[in-house]
Design a protein around this nucleic acid. Structure first.
Lengths: 344, 344
DNA sequence: TTGTAAGCGTTATCAT
DNA sequence: ATGATAACGCTTACAA
């Protein structure tokens, strides 16, 4: 193996000092064109790559963007990640991903590790960090974006949506379509799911149709299989339920399969609304209504805000509400209707 | 903000030298118990966290595990990641995730960035790295695991399965169940999908039932929607097709939905086999046959091999074949059968 | 068992 | 425009 090439090796080859090479790499405009060209050539020829550790130690900065998400398997976060990776492409930034596993303590631990590296920026999920985590973030000496949710009192910046409002809107949609005994299926019960439940409960109470027995929740992670199970549970507790707001699209798909198995007609006998509008919702049979959240855009915007702040630009709106949209499809067409405005 | 606490600050507080504190952190058994306790206490009290950059620079090592995967949105890789994160939990290792986007060049670039950090270990996807990437990996001075596939000529270690054999097995399964005009649906067409196609083609040719028109592929990423589209394409090209081997479970689910829409009976008129056995396959209606790959286990094993090597243990089997299993469900029960051995 | 001294490869500071 | 020198915070010899 070829020995490691250092700054001084390049400098020697060119016949200049190490600082000059360093300058060519970081602030080329400060170096005369003649020298700059010779250095650039030598760097390429020798295959020099700066040592990130030495750089970090000397400059007290890194090109690392720390991202903390609660799950690596959840579809929802992969979409956000895609937005992040898309936007970072080509920039001199490296992403370091931390998996908090929905644990506030693990988040705290990772934040300790991350902030020690003097990252260029940090992205964390949600607004429910522990007091210690929030303190770490405030001291972090780098821009911070909280994603997925919005709220008052941002640590620094926020991009997300109001899950409570989204829960309200989904419930109203089912109600407006004529369903009355609307159930709620929730998995994991992380803070965002809980806020959607709040929204659901508010609407149901306002309408005087709220009933505890219509709510089935679990701390287990959301899966299609779980959707089947939770619907079974709901049906046994409330056989007269006529629709359900599923807090994740996987649950909704599971509910659909279970309905097919039980020969329950969707949407005539039973309405379904999911959450997040995963790609498959549109092509299910019948197609499934969901609440579209702009997750990829969320990742993109978070990075953009981070970049702008690193560049010293002032952020006019530190809290960005990306909103949501009810994507009404056949599964929530309304009870016992005959017409079919949607083709699928 | 409190000033950054360094090793010397802790040393001063305790009344020992910096090396001693450093030893307590890395090799506590070399320090007398009395001193060790006082140091540990001071570390906790002052909230000292070592600077990873300084540590890396001084020791020429890091606690970073570099993981390179082709996609952050693909379910298949999230399962592997889960295995990795599960196994790493509690260990003094940090995971750095790189997204190659199925690009050999991006893989090369990331490998350059990663290897410069002197990682504790590296995990890369597949066996089709570029010559330069392979050279980088061989020089990497750290253990390397190639995952997802196996083959001869490992760079260092491998954990995976033979996708060609899996493709053969899936095709044979459909044939053994009585289907004859078996189609092939493939998305993305990455190296692993291509090898599954090879396996499919071999079996079909051996049986003398191979036909080009039965194969529909695209470079687009695998989605449920794409499954619907590819089936439509296949049906228009070969209306007499009686089964399909889908190279991803998303495609298979899309195919199922499209069959439901077209009122094609599965499995009587049409057999379906997916790949990967995602959780939802078991609860679809009808339940969907798939090829189970042990993706979570794959991640776990990769980490274990890495850890063992870091600990200096010799690896007896550097190439681990995790195999696969045909999980036969209703969707491939066979054409025009009447009995139903499976409940769903 | 503990401490001293010399780097690790880069950047910041201050000269020239 | 370029260079000399001192950090940056830690670890690795080697010494005591």
């Amino acid at each position: 193996m070829d020995k490691k090439i250092r700054l001084v090796d390049v400098a020697e080859a060119v016949g200049v000092s190490a600082v000059t090479v360093s300058r060519v790499l970081r602030k080329p405009e400060l170096v005369s064109e003649a020298v700059r060209l010779r250095v650039t050539e030598a760097v390429a020829r020798l295959g020099y790559v700066p040592d990130p550790a030495a750089r970090a130690l000397a400059s007290a900065r890194t090109d690392v963007l720390g991202i903390l998400i609660p799950s690596v398997t959840n579809n929802v976060f992969s979409a956000v990640l895609r937005g992040i990776y898309d936007r970072v492409e080509g920039l001199p930034l490296n992403i370091q991903l931390g998996n908090t596993r929905y644990s506030v303590l693990e988040e705290e631990r990772l934040l300790g590790v991350f902030t020690r590296q003097r990252p260029a920026g940090l992205i964390v999920t949600g607004v429910d960090q522990s007091a210690r985590s929030k303190a770490l973030l405030r001291q972090a000496a780098c821009p911070v974006v909280q994603i997925m949710e919005i709220g008052d009192d941002p640590i620094d910046m926020m991009v997300g949506l109001s899950h409570r409002d989204a829960g309200r809107a989904a419930t109203r949609h089912l109600r407006d379509r004529g369903y009355r005994r609307i159930g709620f299926l929730g998995a994991r019960m992380d803070p965002r799911t809980q806020r959607r439940l709040e929204g659901y409960a508010e609407v149901m109470k306002d309408d005087g149709i709220f009933e505890e027995r219509l709510i089935v929740t679990t701390r287990r992670a959301s899966t299609v299989t779980l959707g089947c199970e939770l619907l079974s549970e709901l049906l046994s507790r409330a056989p007269d339920v006529d629709a359900v707001f599923c807090n994740n699209d996987d649950l909704a798909v599971g509910v659909l399969f279970e309905c097919q198995r039980r020969r329950i007609s969707v949407p005539e006998d039973f309405g379904i609304c999911g959450f997040n509008d995963l790609e498959m919702m549109a092509v299910a049979h019948p197609s499934l209504t969901s609440v579209r959240t702009n997750r990829t855009e969320m990742g993109r915007r978070a990075i953009e805000m981070l970049i702008a702040r690193v560049a010293g630009e002032p952020i006019d709106t530190p809290v960005v509400d990306l909103g949501f949209e009810i994507v009404a499809r056949r599964s929530s067409l309304g009870p016992s209707r005959r017409e079919a405005p949607f083709s699928t």
